[in-house]
């Protein structure tokens, strides 16, 4: 089967890629476009290290044919990092020691961003549920949960400030 041209919006910028049918979004992001914050722990939907946001929803990019995101907004960790400094979630991961090797971290942060986007004050159980598809082999999940709670608190206190 021949290749196709697919267009989607990556981190706010339109990109056009030429792909064979069934090429995954993960392969396009990592190997055609060089977005290596998208990790590759299993390529079978088992680890969550490849999670990206599609229209704001966390998706495992290894299970997604890139055709399926044609015309959509895709956000990787690269686009979550502000031009200056760190996003509040990134800062919280740093402060809470929410990683050791760092290989699961991009997926964890992307999931956290999506969760806090929908639900700025999640309960502990909601945080735990959000990470149902993400495995960390090093850190243990407590510091990761604490980081999300910390980021939620930081947002709340910022929102409470006048001005």
């Amino acid at each position: 089967m021949g290749s196709k041209i697919i267009t989607f919006v990556l981190g706010g910028r339109e990109v056009e890629v030429m792909v064979k049918p069934m090429t995954t979004l993960q392969a396009v992001l990592r190997y055609q476009l060089g977005y290596t914050a998208v990790k590759e722990g299993c390529r079978q939907g088992g680890c969550g290290s490849c999670t990206v946001l599609v229209e704001g929803e966390p998706m495992m990019s290894c299970l997604l044919p890139v055709e399926d995101v044609a015309g959509m907004h895709v956000t990787t960790l690269e686009a979550i990092t502000p031009a200056d400094g760190l996003d509040r979630v990134q800062q919280a991961f740093l402060e809470h020691g929410a990683f050791q090797c760092g290989y699961c971290t991009p997926g964890m942060i992307v999931v956290s961003k999506a969760l806090l986007g929908h639900n700025p004050r999640p309960t502990r159980q909601e945080i735990v549920d959000a990470f149902a598809g993400n495995i960390c082999r090093c850190t243990g999940y407590e510091p990761i949960i604490a980081a999300v709670e910390g980021a939620a608190r930081a947002s709340a206190s910022k929102a409470a400030q006048p001005g």
Binding site: T36, L77, L86, F99
Partner: peptide, 18 residues
Amino acid sequence: SDGIGHVTGRTQFATDHS
């Protein structure tokens, strides 16, 4: 020292090179 790299996804793991 590798913290910022890990939270931004800028850390290059071996097979991130191509």
